[in-house]
Structures are given as structure tokens and as C-alpha cells.
Design a protein around this nucleic acid. Structure first.
Length: 287
DNA sequence: ACCCAGGGTCGTC
DNA sequence: GACGACCCTGGG
């Protein structure tokens, strides 16, 4: 078992990071810790006082895997100061989710996960991804229990449309099937996308994939490619933006372009981060 | 029991 | 550009 301990890490609260809706493979344990599978590693996170304890198993270097995934070299205090000064809502939402960090998730996993997220709810999305990993992912043991890595494109391409349907994917089965093939055959080349500088060029490539529309593409850009300036608009964001800034009686009539423009004006190059604070705040406090 | 919404996208008009 | 259809599941 590998272990990595850090102290006095700024902007890091397990609940905020794992429950703010950016990731689907972390599960809270009865003792309050979180266990998740990322890339080639299974990791348990515990946090008390000023200390964070990571333990687990990994094929590659444990510390660098964690440093990269949790983006520990990025200082969020600066971001939060900037956003908090915009208005009272941002101030409030950041106070609520002060421990949020945007994770650096694997691009391929992110693509599949957010295709599954279409017209779906988070508990079901998590279950589907778990079943998919058990069926097609590699086993990794930790603490006497068995975990499963997210399947590679090669492994997932072995699944037929019907196999995917049986995992509970519903109408998303064909989308996953087609997208997996497109990525495997490099019709859309993920390595090339990661090297692109221009966000719009990245988005253009992602939109070629079956099941990837504007919202899913923006989530992939934000969570899989760390483009903090993109602003994914879903029902919750539409809701919170309308409640706070637009006050349209019919929330569904709120124009998407109008929202994009508003976000750009207000939040600028930190739109994606602002979205995450607002989304988390709204979702957790309106239930 | 029934209805509805859930981090939308796709095909069709 | 609008509009409905779409698998499935949990909660009212």
C-alpha cells in the first residue's frame, strides 16, 4: 500500500471536490473517507485538521499521480479572491464551496462519462460507469477489496450495442459504441486535441463525436482539458443564472447565447470555475 | 398507481 | 432554428 501525506493544503475539502458534480467515481465511505479509481490507481482520501492522507495502489508514481489529478500546484485563493469580488452571489457560493478544486480528469473517461450524463441523473450515471468498469475495466486490488479501472477504448470496443444496452445505458448505447470506434480509429485523435492551443478548435473536434453536443463538449473542455474559461450550460446553471441575474418568468425561455454572453462579461476567463461554485451552491441548497 | 425530471443530443420538419 | 423522442430510475 502506498501512502502520501500533505499538510496545510489550501482550498481542499473532500466533500466539495467530490460532490460538486465534476466526477463520478468517488464514493463516500462509512468512516467519512472517500475512495475512488482514477486512471491506474485506486485512492483513499482522509482529511482531518490540516492534514490530508492519501493511501492506495497505483501502477505509476503515486505522488505525482495525485499532484496532477488534484492539481495541487494551482493556487485557488487567487481565483476565489477575484471571483468573490464580482458580487454577493459569487461571494456566497464560494464561501459555501470554498474547498472546490477542478480535477484534471482523463480525457477519454471524461468523454464517455459526460455522454452518459445526457438527460440523466447523477446516481444513475455513477451506477452505469461502475458497471461498465466492472465489465470491461482492469481489476486493481486495495485493502483486500477489488476495484476496477475505467475501461480503455480497446477494451470498451469489445462491447456490442446490445452489451452496452444491457449495462443500463439506454438510448446512449449507440452513442458510446460509435464514439469508442471513432476514438479508437483516431477519426478523432485525443492526443492531438490535448496538444491544441485554441479552445474553439478543441471543441470543434469534440463535437464530431456521437453524443457530444455543446453542453457535453463544454464539460469535457472544463473537466478533461482544464479550460477554465468555458461555461457549460445545463438546467441547473440556467436555473441559478436566471434566479440571480435575469429574472425571466419562464426559465426555459432564457436564451443560451444570452447566458454565454453574461458569463463572459461577468466571470471572464474564470467562467467555468464560477459555474462550478454556482452549480454546487444551487444544487446543494435548493434540495 | 401514475407522473415527472434528470448536468442533452439527434433526427426531422 | 424549433420540436418531439428517447432508456431508465428514483422520488413525489
Amino acid at each position: 500500500m502506498k501512502k502520501y501525506i500533505i499538510k496545510n493544503q489550501e482550498s481542499f475539502k473532500m466533500e466539495d471536490i467530490f460532490d460538486c458534480g465534476q466526477c463520478f467515481r468517488w464514493n463516500k465511505q462509512e468512516d467519512g473517507s472517500y475512495v475512488g479509481v482514477i486512471k491506474d490507481a485506486v485512492i483513499k482520501v482522509e482529511q482531518h485538521n490540516n492534514q490530508i492522507v492519501f493511501s492506495g495502489e497505483s501502477d505509476k508514481d503515486f505522488e505525482s499521480t495525485i499532484n496532477y489529478y488534484f492539481d495541487l500546484n494551482t493556487n485557488y485563493s487567487k481565483y476565489k479572491d477575484k471571483l468573490s469580488n464580482i458580487d454577493q452571489y459569487l461571494f456566497e457560493s464560494i464561501k459555501f464551496g470554498e474547498g472546490i478544486r477542478i480535477l484534471r480528469q482523463d480525457l477519454w473517461e471524461c468523454i464517455i462519462s459526460f455522454i452518459i450524463s445526457a438527460n440523466n441523473n447523477i446516481p444513475r450515471i455513477k451506477k452505469i460507469i461502475e458497471r461498465m468498469s466492472i465489465a470491461y475495466g482492469e481489476k486493481i486490488k486495495f485493502n483486500g477489496a477489488e476495484y476496477y479501472k475505467f475501461p480503455t477504448p480497446e477494451a470498451l470496443s469489445k462491447a456490442s450495442v446490445q452489451d452496452l444496452r444491457n449495462l443500463g445505458l439506454g438510448f446512449r448505447d449507440k452513442r458510446i459504441y460509435n464514439t469508442t470506434k471513432m476514438i479508437l480509429e483516431k477519426e478523432v485523435d485525443l492526443e492531438k486535441i490535448e496538444k491544441l492551443e485554441n479552445t474553439n478548435l478543441m471543441r470543434e473536434e469534440l463535437l464530431k463525436l456521437d453524443g457530444v453536443g455543446p453542453k457535453v463538449a463544454d464539460c469535457i473542455l472544463l473537466f478533461g482539458l482544464k479550460r477554465l474559461d468555458v461555461f457549460p450550460i445545463d438546467v441547473w446553471v440556467r436555473r441559478v443564472m436566471n434566479d440571480l441575474y435575469i429574472h425571466n418568468e419562464d426559465e426555459e425561455k432564457v436564451n443560451k447565447k444570452e447566458l454565454q454572453k453574461l458569463a463572459e462579461e461577468k466571470f471572464g476567463d474564470l467562467s467555468g470555475l464560477a459555474q462550478q461554485y454556482l452549480f454546487y451552491w444551487k444544487r446543494e441548497t435548493s434540495a
